[in-house]
Simulated assay, not measured.
Amino acid sequence: MQAPITSQPMIVGNVMGHREWSTGLFDCFSDCGTCLMGYFCLPCTMCTIASKQGDCACMPFCVPGAMVALRARIRTLGGIRGSICNDCLVMSFCGGCAVCQLHRELNNMGL
């Protein structure tokens, strides 16, 4: 006779996150290299973020809402507090600064 199958929760961390972003949204000058790359070649920065996440480098230009999805993914993997609504608003109104923040966060996470 087989033992009954029991389901285990797959949550690996707190859904709400346990920390804040390592740098603020407008801390662009804390990393001048990222700031310059984001200012002069924002598409290159976006492609770098996607490829560091293991996605195709062209993903930000082929998938609608890709940067919101990448921000949510980085936030979730890093255990950063926030919400999808906040991610959407930040990417909509402060996109360039948010892309630089994502790049700095990945660097600070060691990716």
Rank of each mutant, 00 (worst) to 15 (best):
S51H: 13
V63A: 09
I74M: 04
L77K: 12
A50T: 08
C58F: 15
A69W: 01
P60C: 13
A72I: 02
P64R: 05
P64F: 04
K52Y: 07
S51W: 11
G79Y: 07
A57Y: 08
S51R: 15
R71Q: 05
I74K: 01
C56L: 14
D55S: 11
C58A: 15
L77D: 12
G79M: 09
G54K: 05
G78R: 04
L77C: 11
C47S: 15
D55E: 14
R71G: 00
M67N: 03
Q53C: 14
K52I: 06
R73W: 04
L70Q: 01
S51N: 14
I80P: 01
R81Y: 04
R75S: 03
F61I: 13
V63K: 12
G82Y: 04
F61N: 13
A57M: 13
A72M: 06
P64Y: 03
M59L: 15
I74H: 00
G78F: 04
D55N: 13
G54I: 05
C56W: 07
G78Y: 05
G82W: 02
G65R: 10
G65V: 09
A57P: 06
A69R: 02
I49Y: 01
I74D: 00
G79F: 07
A57T: 10
A66L: 08
A66E: 05
M67K: 01
D55A: 11
V63D: 05
A69Y: 02
G54T: 07
A69E: 02
C47E: 12
A66M: 08
I74F: 03
R75D: 02
Q53V: 08
M59D: 11
I80W: 02
Q53A: 12
A57R: 07
R75L: 04
R81N: 07
C56T: 10
V63H: 08
C62G: 11
I74T: 03
A72T: 04
R73V: 03
V68D: 00
K52H: 13
I74L: 07
A57G: 12
L77V: 13
M67E: 03
C56P: 02
G79V: 08
G54P: 02
C58M: 15
V68F: 00
